[in-house]
Simulated assay, not measured.
Amino acid sequence: MVKIPNTFGLTVTAKRLIKWPSQQALFKPDESFIIVGAGSNLLFVDAEFDGQLIQLEQDEFIIEQTASDYLVTLGAGLNWHQTVKRLIDAGIDGLENLALIPGTVGAAPVQNIGAYGVEFSQLCESVTGYNLQTQQVETLNNQQCQFAYRESVFKKQLKDKFIITQVTLRLTKNWQANLSYGPLAELNNPTAIQIFEQVCLIRQSKLPDPAKLPNAGSFFKNPVVEASVFNQLIKQDPNIPNYPQADGKVKLAAGYLIDKAGLKGAVYQNAKVHQQQALVLVNQGGSCGVEIANLAAMVRQTVLALFKVKLNPEVRFIGKQGEVDSAQFLDLLIAENKK
């Protein structure tokens, strides 16, 4: 048995560890597996994972150029934040808004990570990996990755069928600052490194360091609701933050809803809603995954009752046999707690 790394500070084990690709021959395709870098976006709801833990070794860092762009190919095992800084130090800008997001490069396309007005999908040229069904290395272009808000083909059709080994980014040489997120708008004609530093300061002020207080960052996705739902909400609260979408729907701030529900500092066993950032659930010490999930269920139920809006986890839930539907898992807990 091997311990599975995770930023929630949970003690979880897998049957065996496989380093990919050096130990690829040990992989058993008929057994369940999970790919874990830092485990920064995972909640293990069982103490054991009855399968294989894969950790990626790829650390390529290849820069090519066209007249207008940099094409940057990155190994999936690289640390994301360190890679962002490495590129900026090399004079290649474009990822600065995504600074200090925990995890590895290989995890970025799965979740289509995003922050401060930028999403991974906007910069992704292609994703390369090993297709377990065809047993071939394949490259998917941006469109084939089917990116959406915190979604991708790697969470749907290719879930448990594709091991990402590389990503290639296209970063323009005609860089322009993206200051669409509120606090960044205060910057006056900033450089990429200044945006990078500001994003780091904002994240450090809002989000607890997992090394000091175990957490997985933002626990819930920002909900996207129909215009009719939003029209009712704004009558209820004229100050509710809102972000109109191209399809007529409206994105809301999950943290704001949780805060307005009076849940900052709410506790379930040893799990707690962070007092400074309502979107973050923390392990105060000795908590198990189900306790954290129960706290999340309480948050989901309370926000639904007050605002008629369902919050869905951004964090992925892993059970004994593999990933489980996080929203369904929370609804089952809610049902059990009502008995």
Rank of each mutant, 00 (worst) to 15 (best):
V2R: 06
I4E: 02
I4M: 03
L17Q: 07
K19P: 05
Q23M: 00
K28H: 07
F33V: 06
V45P: 08
A47L: 04
D50M: 04
Q52E: 11
I54V: 11
I54H: 04
Q55D: 04
L56N: 00
Q82T: 10
L87M: 04
D89H: 02
A90Y: 03
G91R: 11
A108H: 09
P109L: 09
V110F: 07
Q111F: 08
I113D: 02
F120T: 13
L123A: 05
S126M: 06
S126Q: 04
V127N: 08
N131Q: 10
E138K: 07
Q143K: 14
Q143G: 12
R150W: 06
E151G: 13
V153Y: 05
K159L: 12
T165F: 00
V167Y: 04
K173V: 14
N174R: 08
W175Y: 13
L179C: 09
L179H: 08
G182A: 15
E186M: 14
N188E: 14
N189F: 06
A192L: 07
I193Q: 12
R203Q: 13
Q204P: 11
K206A: 10
P208E: 03
P210T: 03
K212P: 03
L213P: 01
P214V: 03
F219N: 02
F220C: 12
K221C: 13
A227K: 15
V229E: 09
Q236K: 15
D237E: 14
P238F: 08
I240C: 05
G248P: 10
K249L: 12
Y256I: 11
A261C: 14
A261Y: 02
Y268H: 15
Y268C: 15
N270C: 01
Q276I: 08
L281S: 06
N283L: 11
G286A: 10
N294S: 15
V299L: 10
Q301T: 15
Q301A: 15
L304R: 13
V309E: 03
V315M: 06
R316M: 10
G319F: 02
Q328H: 06
F329D: 02
D331M: 08
L332M: 13
L333K: 11
A335M: 09
